[in-house]
Structure formats: C-alpha cells, structure tokens
Design a protein around this nucleic acid. Structure first.
Lengths: 117, 117
DNA sequence: CACTTTCGTAAGCCATGACTTACGGTAAGC
DNA sequence: GCTTACCGTAAGTCATGGCTTACGAAAGTG
C-alpha cells in the first residue's frame, strides 16, 4: 500500500533530485535547496511528500532540520518490483514459448509501425 | 535515462492497473478497457505511454492489437533501484554509526542481499 | 531583550496531464 | 461491394500538483 506513494514521489524530477542528494548523506533543507533551481519552500514541500511516503526521516538539529533516507520505504518499493518482475518474466517466457513457433522471435519481432496513408 | 520515464508511467494509478493486468499475460486493448473504469481511448493513450517508456511491447493480431510486458523496461528500473538501494543503505549505516544513539528501535533493517538474474 | 537564521505552512498562479467525445483507418464477416 | 468490430489520434475540458511569495514559529546569538 505504500509502494504506490513511493512511485508517485520518485516520479517527479525535482523530488527525485532531492532524494538522490540525500543518498550522499543527511542534509538540511537549506543545503538541499542551494543546489537546486527551486526555492527553499518548494524543497520543504517535496521533503514532506517524501516523508509521508516513508522514503525519508528527519531529525531536529537546533534550528535546522536534517533529512536522511529511510531504507524501509525503498525496501518496500524494491520488494514490490521484485515480486512484479518475477511474475512478468514468467508470463513473458510462457508467451515466447507458446506464441511464435514460426519465425525466430529474437530481434525485431513486434510490429510497431503502421502504414502511412 | 529510461528509468525516469518508467517511474513516471508507473506513478499513475490507472496506468499501473493496465500494466498490472498485463502481468497475467498478453491482452488486447478492448479487454484491458473492459475491466477499467475509463474509456478505451484512455487505455490506448496509457498503452502508448507505457510503450514509449519501454515497459510494454505490442503485436498486431488481425484487427486487434495485443500488448504484453517487455521485461527490459522493468529490468532497467530494477537495476537503478538496486544501485540506489546499495548507496542509500551504506549512507544509512554510516549515519547510524557516527551519529549519537538517537535512532529509532530499528524494526528489522531490510536484508541487503538478493538474487541476481 | 532585539536580531538573525532556519524552516514549515498558507494562498494563489499556472502548466501538466488524464479523461472525454468525435472521427478516420484497417481487418474480418456477410 | 457493404457492414461491423477494433483501434489510434485529434481536440477540448477540467482537476491535480508543483512552484512562487508572504508570513509566522522556534532556536541560536549578542
């Protein structure tokens, strides 16, 4: 139920940049905003979204507020992706076995183009 | 460079439902739309987005058009997530070691190992 | 105390995108 | 031939959300 919010969070480019900078280690809001082309309140809002999604944790450090990645959020997303991956791969292999017996299904199998009028 | 579009695609709930139904196997557009609360053109647009992101492939089957999951797109997203996970976990552990014991009770830090395809 | 720094929130603006209906084009059936 | 089924695209509507500026709270400094 939480991998959905994680996906939503990581879909936004700016929010992903914030999250990727936290990969280097704990950072305060101002530090994060200094390296981004958006204002500090924007970063604050992104951090709130990341926190609600369980992707980051925060810690008060005087007047500053330090954020850092919570591995639990990423872990849940990773587990969902693995679970999905397994089933998708099985379906794909089963499809490759049963469907195209004629020609070799290797390179340019699926027809993506249509005729032009 | 493609994991970003994959994240964007999977962020939308309806598009994710389309993708999750394809996990069961190849489906035509009409079949997918029949089980969803949106119109068929909407599903068609979602499938185009999924295809542009490298998450699905399609095949002409008479007048119908059958879509199915392309494991390559998911694989790239999975590789990015793994790479991110490793660095984030290192940073988190390093943080837990150097910072004073202001940590939460740690309800099971996720295991670091995993299978490799 | 006054003043600064750091940050979160509120209010508003505005572009993005998800959805609809309408239409054209291709394949199969009669 | 005509008709039906299936699908992609165009055009337009409308809500979502990312961004800004403005303001207030909390902690540190002199």
């Amino acid at each position: 139920m939480a991998y959905e919010s994680a996906l939503r969070c990581l879909a936004d480019p700016t929010r992903r940049r914030v999250f990727e900078r936290l990969r280097e280690g704990p950072r305060a809001v101002g530090e994060l905003a200094a390296g981004l082309p958006v204002s500090r309140p924007a970063v604050s809002q992104h951090l709130k979204a990341l926190k609600d999604a369980g992707l980051v944790l925060d810690r008060a450090e005087g007047a500053r507020r330090v954020y850092f990645i919570d591995p639990e959020g990423l872990g849940e997303l990773r587990r969902w992706l693995d679970w999905f991956w397994d089933q998708a791969l099985d379906a794909f292999k089963h499809e490759a076995e049963t469907q195209p017996p004629r020609r070799r299904p290797a390179r340019g199998t699926p027809s993506s183009e249509r005729k032009k009028p």
